[in-house]
Amino acid sequence: MIGDVPYGAAQIAAFPTWVDEINAAKPAVTFHVGDIKNGSTRCDDPYYAMIKTQFNRFTSPFIYTPGDNEWTDCHRANNGSYNPLERLAYDRSVFFSNPGTTLGAPMKVASQANAGFPENVNLRKQGIDFAVIHVVGSNDDLQPWTGIGQTTATPQQAAEEKARMANAIPVVHNAFADARRKNDRAVMVLLQADMFDPSYTPTWNDISAFKPLVQALIDESATFDGPVYLVNGDSHVYNTDKPLATGSSWLTTYGVSGSADNLQRITVDGSSNNKDWLKFTVNRPGAAEPLSWERVPYQHQAG
């Protein structure tokens, strides 16, 4: 797992070596949980092509879900004052031109391309069911596009976000349904947005868009006999917690019903903390936990 990388010139220069280091570990699958650039650099076409070239250098199947920096936040003047929906369409045209197939080493995945969301995918590996969904920071793109003169979300913004979230939640349902049907050991949901960022107290305008997904995660996890892992980027600091466990303040913050004591959230390092990648291991049947993980330092550090 990697995310929020590469950020800035030094990490861009180091990224090919980081790809080599991950390849040397021979992972079964590599995931990127969004943000292929920092939030204060331009969203110009050549950058996306350069990143795709690096993504295709992975020798394992490579699965990427978009982050806010590569489309939602491109309205900013220092990003080029782009229309974010145009950048979203461009991101899809670059990274999801062959829907249903991964970047890197080709592997088939169940894609939502027919619904217009090729980035939303399900897959199953070694008794673990995965839902990779396109849910981003900036309140899932309901924050105003200030760089192009907006002070509230446009009707087009609101419609796009509603449709994208309405597609993402069934992808989560699919993963749980597959896990129950096949008696699988665990479910993992991957997305960019940190819906439970512990570093600040959010306003409702920061997180309101996530409520339907949070409720869906509670409903599914509470009726699943096994651990659930939620992996995200966005806040850049490695963290693991149980934000939806009984008694969590997040339940009140979101105004949701129920709880999910079996859901564990993991945030990957990113931004200036891009000094490592996160290695997940599927443990043998009978182990105390289906998955374990460790932070693997890059041998070559940026800068």
Rank of each mutant, 00 (worst) to 15 (best):
N273K: 10
M188N: 01
N139V: 09
V33D: 14
Q192D: 09
V237L: 08
Y254T: 03
S249E: 11
P212E: 07
Y238A: 08
N78T: 08
S271P: 00
N139R: 11
G8Q: 02
A110I: 09
W18S: 01
Q150G: 01
V296H: 00
S40H: 10
A179V: 10
L88C: 05
F117W: 12
A105Y: 02
Y238Q: 13
S93Y: 08
S199D: 12
T203S: 11
K125A: 12
W145C: 05
F117G: 01
M1C: 02
G80M: 11
T267V: 14
Q11V: 03
D269L: 03
R92Q: 14
R76E: 15
N78K: 15
W293Y: 07
M165E: 06
T267R: 09
A9L: 06
N139S: 09
T41K: 08
F130N: 00
K125I: 13
T41W: 03
N262F: 06
T59H: 02
N167H: 12
P202E: 02
A105F: 02
Q301D: 06
W145D: 14
H75E: 08
N174G: 05
L230H: 07
L142R: 14
R295P: 00
N56Q: 11
F96H: 14
F96Y: 10
Y90P: 04
S257I: 14
A260M: 15
P155V: 11
A49K: 15
P46Y: 14
K37N: 03
V268T: 08
G149A: 09
R76C: 00
A14H: 01
E220P: 03
I63Q: 01
L213M: 13
N167F: 13
D206E: 12
G3C: 08
F15D: 04
A14F: 00
R92M: 10
G270S: 05
V136P: 00
L278M: 12
A158M: 15
Q54W: 10
E220L: 06
T65R: 11
A245M: 13
G149V: 07
I51W: 04
V132D: 02
R284Y: 07
N38F: 04
A179E: 05
G270H: 03
D276A: 11
A288R: 10
A209L: 01
A153E: 12
G303I: 13
R284Q: 11
K108M: 04
G67P: 07
F130G: 02
D141Q: 15
A49I: 13
K182P: 00
A245I: 10
K182T: 12
G104Y: 00
A175K: 10
F31R: 01
V268C: 04
L213R: 15
T17A: 01
G255W: 07
Y47M: 08
S221H: 06
F58N: 00
L191K: 07
V231E: 04
W250Q: 05
Y47S: 05
G127R: 08
R124N: 14
D129H: 13
V172K: 04
A131H: 04
D140S: 11
Y90N: 08
S81P: 03
V132R: 03
G67A: 06
T151K: 08
K125W: 14
G286F: 05
